[in-house]
Design a protein around this nucleic acid. Structure first.
Length: 178
DNA sequence: CCCTGATTCGC
DNA sequence: GCGAATCAGG
């Protein structure tokens, strides 16, 4: 069994993705065969850590007393389900806000193909409107630039929040007008 | 709980 | 040098 080697190719991909703003676990998934710990470790060894990081996490830590004793597992409560996946696939209904998703039109076609992206390509500002069936091979997110603080682009924000506004307005009318 | 990067240290 | 274990924080 061949040990993992940080070939120039993989290192360059690592650098690219890291500078691109992807998280360590995302990069780990992209590279494959490595955990996010490995990625982080490599990043530090390469000296390209800290990309506009808050000083809070840079606070000194007490040294570990010892980790040697294998006869004394310190964390027996850790389940064997350690996964290096940053995200698990979720049904669209879980991702979407509180909105009755009944009569939503087939909006898939209005999203520019070029903007669609996988979960790995999502940025902080990317529109998270799901397109297609979660888990399926062609499942994508809208990916278009979203407004500040909103999980969706301007277009999908309207779709997502309009029903809420409608319900609120209707309730208001029903309460007041009677 | 989920996640993030940072750090230590056995290998 | 590598990366799991751990820590500290959001």
């Amino acid at each position: 069994m061949q040990q993992l080697q940080w070939t120039d190719e993989r290192v360059e991909l690592l650098k690219k993705l890291w500078n691109d703003g992807l998280s360590a676990s995302q990069i780990a998934n992209e590279l494959g065969q490595v955990t996010r710990n490995a990625v982080i470790g490599k990043v530090h060894r390469l000296g390209l850590s800290g990309r506009a990081k808050a000083p809070s996490s840079a606070a000194p830590r007490a040294r570990k007393p010892a980790r040697s004793a294998p006869s004394a597992p310190p964390r027996p409560s850790m389940p064997a389900s350690r996964s290096n996946l940053a995200f698990k696939p979720r049904p669209a209904a879980e991702i979407m806000p509180e909105v009755e998703v009944a009569p939503l039109p087939a909006i898939d076609n209005v999203v520019p193909m070029g903007e669609r992206c996988t979960i790995m390509e999502l940025k902080e500002y990317s529109c998270r409107w799901p397109i297609g069936e979660p888990g399926k091979d062609d499942f994508r997110y809208c990916g278009a630039r979203s407004s500040t603080g909103l999980p969706y682009c301007a277009y999908h924000s309207r779709i997502a929040y309009q029903p809420v506004a409608d319900r609120r307005r209707d309730r208001k009318q029903a309460a007041g007008g009677r």
